[in-house]
Write a protein that binds this DNA or RNA. Structure first.
Length: 584
RNA sequence: GCCCCUGUGGCGCAAUGGUAGCGCGGUCGACUUGUAAUCGACAGGUUAGGGGUUCGAGUCCCCUCUGGGGCUCCA
């Protein structure tokens, strides 16, 4: 049930078009099977998706895993019969008569403009209202698999009935289907919630509250290394680093407009000395107060104020997910206040900083979108134009491909969003660079211009990693828990073979520690093999085995977590190798 | 928030309505061992919380909470 034109036909390749068509056909075959098993089912819609397809149904009871098996079995039979798909056009009246017992289909028909031709697709005894196109026959669907069931509101509207959605996928061959299922399994193995527990990185507790994360010592190392790098990078790019409190008076949020427009995402106020204070959902008002605490000359601008600022937002309980969607998180936030003629350079600088930062974590593929002025907006159209143009120019100057989301900007300014592609090819939205024509007005921000008058600065919000919690979640999955040396919580573990090697093991640890490495000695009275296994499971980059031979040579036998055994190396060489490892 | 699923020692799991077990981990002891799991003993649970049905509830019912899959794809 896809409005074919909606699937971004401009960008879709012929093979993708064919795949969509196949999956769309698979959705029909599934609906057919469901109606055979559940004749009373009311059909919703059933389009192809990026990874497969789904179809929504209203049924008297939810589908069970066993139902999925039966449905899939019927689908395979239908595919084996190879029934032809036939298109038929019909009048509105005929369509309504045909779908008289399908209320959702009737609603769809009513929503279609009179000028459009209605069509149905038939295969075997099954008929569905559908624009198409489809394959020639059900026999052209090579490989299918039904995956899971979930509730989904009719038309995505929480005030409408909830239907049962069956997700499935289809591929051009059994092998491709299996590859896809393997990728899903791989993603499951990398799940940051599982690795986070196994590697002792973080936890979330019922006692603390949903969506609130505590970082454990090992996760704390990763996070603090990331933060150190982030700060250093920002200093190098001309930012000032600031700190601000977690709560602020109601008046502040009133002035900023958050209480009027963002309240549903904010926590209820706390009362102190009969004054209301709100937990901050954003850092901007604080950075603005920093700006406002002095008068500014045009000579001082641009001013780049950055903070790893922890904010709290109410997220509906059903959307919370590990580190990816939480209620308390730390933004790598910054606000740039600048002159109109500086805007372009500033945006360019943000982009350069962005790619330098993301590449440090091994990300190199991006998808970028530029969102322009929506219908409802604040500020002067000329400013919007200037800002949008400077965003566009910064992208073009750097030879970056981007999509335009026309009218997709916030009411207060145009923006660039950047998604990164992780090791499994999944997209994650992290970076956002956003003009703000609203807050400078609300807080009456000014600077003394070169003519001696007072002018309003441009203000740009930007976050590169987005939220540290989320970014670390992405990193855990991206690296599958095997962090590069510079981030690894424990960079090397020294493994003495027998108790008599303990003293030497400690001296090896000390030598590396003196060089700034994070090293532990596994001094348990266990066998070497067990210690190696543990170190492997903890994904520790270097395992340094020491026994009689190594003591004699002043060496350590180096095993890498990739599994290679380099044999005994003199300590000086071990140190050098690890230093080289930091760079690469 | 809504729909469905789920909740048993720190973790992963088991237990036809009839005595709560297993593995990992932990502690202790023995072993002193060359590149992914040595052996043994011990400790550890009011089965998420509350209510109900029953002679009897981890198991069935209700409520609350937690976690998970989803809720943009509009023929």
């Amino acid at each position: 049930m896809l409005d074919h034109a909606s699937v971004d036909t401009q960008k879709i390749s012929p093979t993708e078009e064919l795949r969509h068509r196949m999956r769309h056909s698979a959705a029909h075959v599934m609906a057919d099977a469901v109606l055979q098993l559940f004749p009373e089912a009311k059909m919703g819609i059933g389009p192809p998706t990026q990874d497969g397809f789904y179809y929504d149904f209203e049924v008297s009871r939810p589908f069970t895993p066993e139902d999925l098996e039966s449905i899939q079995k019927l689908m395979l039979e239908s595919i084996a019969r190879s029934s032809a798909f036939q298109r038929e056009e019909l009048s509105r009246e005929d369509a309504k008569a045909r779908f008289a017992d399908q209320p959702y289909k009737l609603e769809i028909i009513d929503g279609i403009p009179d000028a459009e031709t209605l069509s149905i697709y038939r295969h075997g005894d099954f008929i569905d209202l559908c624009q198409g196109p489809h394959l020639e026959s059900t026999g052209q669907i090579p490989a299918i698999k039904l995956l899971h069931v979930a509730g989904a509101y009719w038309r995505g509207d929480e005030h409408r009935p909830m239907l049962q959605r069956i997700y499935g996928t289809a591929f051009e061959s059994q092998e491709m289907l299996e590859d896809h299922l393997e990728r899903l399994e791989e993603a499951e193995k990398r799940d940051h919630r599982v690795l986070g527990r196994q590697l002792g990185l973080f936890s979330i507790h019922e006692e603390i509250g949903p969506g609130l994360v505590v970082w454990h010592p090992k996760g704390g190392v990763i996070r603090s290394k990331l933060e150190d790098y982030w700060r250093d990078l920002h200093f190098r790019h001309g930012y000032s680093i600031v700190y601000s409190p977690h709560i602020g008076k109601a008046q502040l949020w009133q002035t900023s407009g958050h209480l009027d427009f963002y309240r549903e995402s904010m926590y209820a106020p706390v009362i102190v000395d009969e004054q209301e204070y709100y937990l901050k959902p954003m850092n901007c008002p604080f950075h603005i107060m920093i700006y406002r605490s002095n008068q500014h000359s045009y000579r001082e601008l641009p001013l780049r104020i950055a903070e790893l600022g922890t904010v709290y937002r109410y997220e509906r309980s059903g959307v919370l997910h590990g580190l990816m969607r939480v209620r308390g998180f730390t933004q790598d936030d910054a606000h740039i206040f600048c002159l109109p003629e500086q805007v372009e350079d500033e945006i360019g600088g943000v982009l350069d900083l962005t790619f330098e930062l993301l590449e440090a974590f091994g990300f190199s593929e991006y998808s970028i979108s530029l969102s322009t002025r929506p219908e409802k907006y604040v500020g002067e159209p000329e400013m919007w134009e200037h800002a949008t143009e400077s965003l566009r120019k910064a992208l073009v100057d750097r030879g970056l491909d981007y999509d335009i989301d026309d009218g997709g900007g916030a009411f207060y300014g145009p923006k660039i969003d950047i998604k990164i592609k992780d090791a499994l090819g999944r997209d994650w939205q992290c970076t956002t660079v956003q003009f703000d024509f609203n807050l400078p007005e609300r807080f009456d921000l000014t600077y003394q211009d070169s003519e001696g008058g007072r002018s309003r600065p441009y203000m740009v919000h930007r976050a590169i990693l987005g939220s540290l919690e989320r970014f670390l979640g992405i990193l855990i999955e991206h690296y599958a828990g095997a962090f590069p040396l510079w981030l690894a919580p424990v960079q090397a573990v020294v493994i003495p073979i027998a108790d008599r090697h303990l003293d030497y093991a400690q001296s090896v640890r000390q030598q590396l520690q003196d060089q700034g490495f994070r090293v532990e000695v596994d001094s348990r009275g266990e066998r070497m093999n067990l210690k190696i296994r543990n170190a492997q499971l903890q994904k520790i980059p270097y395992m340094l085995v020491v026994g009689d031979a190594e003591i004699e040579q002043g060496a350590a036998a180096v095993r890498l977590r990739e599994g290679t055994n380099l044999g005994p190396l003199p300590m000086a060489e071990v140190v050098q190798r690890m230093k080289d490892g930091l760079a690469g």
